[in-house]
């Protein structure tokens, strides 16, 4: 299951989708909207995607992960639109024969998704400010801290 959606993520179904008798381990990662980041209070996050490229990019990510890890099944679902603190923005589920591989694959998938997949978030703070988040600003990694994952 690889998709973008504007609906709340059904992480039970996403986890079920990767269960398999060949797997001895299933890891689920949920990226959730955090309320406070560096003392700033987030009211909501708004996610936008270049839908076509993001979908193909998520598929490439899953394919590439399979070349690095012995993945039995992987699922990646990212939510778009307006999210509140506590909401799930992204769910990644992965199954592998053994547990260390499942943790490593899940970590690689979320880290690489954040570097590569054309999705952006705009943070709305409780004081009324609205700012796009651009974590890849090489000169200022700290500026990339936001209420997301």
């Amino acid at each position: 299951m690889i998709q973008l959606t504007d609906q709340p993520l059904d992480y039970t179904a996403i986890t079920e989708s990767v269960r398999d008798p060949a797997a001895g381990a299933v890891v689920l990662f949920l990226g959730t909207v955090r309320d406070f980041t560096a003392g700033e209070q987030t009211q909501q996050l708004e996610y936008e995607a270049y839908q076509q490229m993001a979908e193909s990019s998520l598929k490439q990510l899953a394919d590439e992960a399979s070349t690095h890890f012995p993945i039995v099944k992987a699922a990646i679902v990212h939510r778009l639109g307006v999210l509140q603190p506590g909401d799930v923005a992204v769910a990644i589920a992965v199954s592998t024969p053994h547990r260390a591989q499942a943790f490593a694959a899940g970590q690689w998938l979320i880290d690489t998704l954040k570097q590569r997949v054309p999705i952006w978030k705009r943070e709305h703070y409780t004081d009324g400010r609205v700012l796009w988040q651009h974590p890849a600003a090489a000169t200022d990694a700290a500026a990339g801290q936001s209420g997301g994952t």
């Binding site: 490229m53 979320i110 952006w120 936001s146």
Partner: peptide, 29 residues
């Protein structure tokens, strides 16, 4: 920059009819 849904380099060849995309660093997750 991307060309036809793939990240592209300055020397990437573009044909008439292609779709280019221009965006800031990504921040999903």
């Amino acid at each position: 920059w991307a060309v036809n849904n793939q990240y592209a380099l300055p020397a990437t060849m573009i044909q008439p009819g292609d779709t280019v995309a221009c965006f800031p660093p990504v921040s999903g997750g």
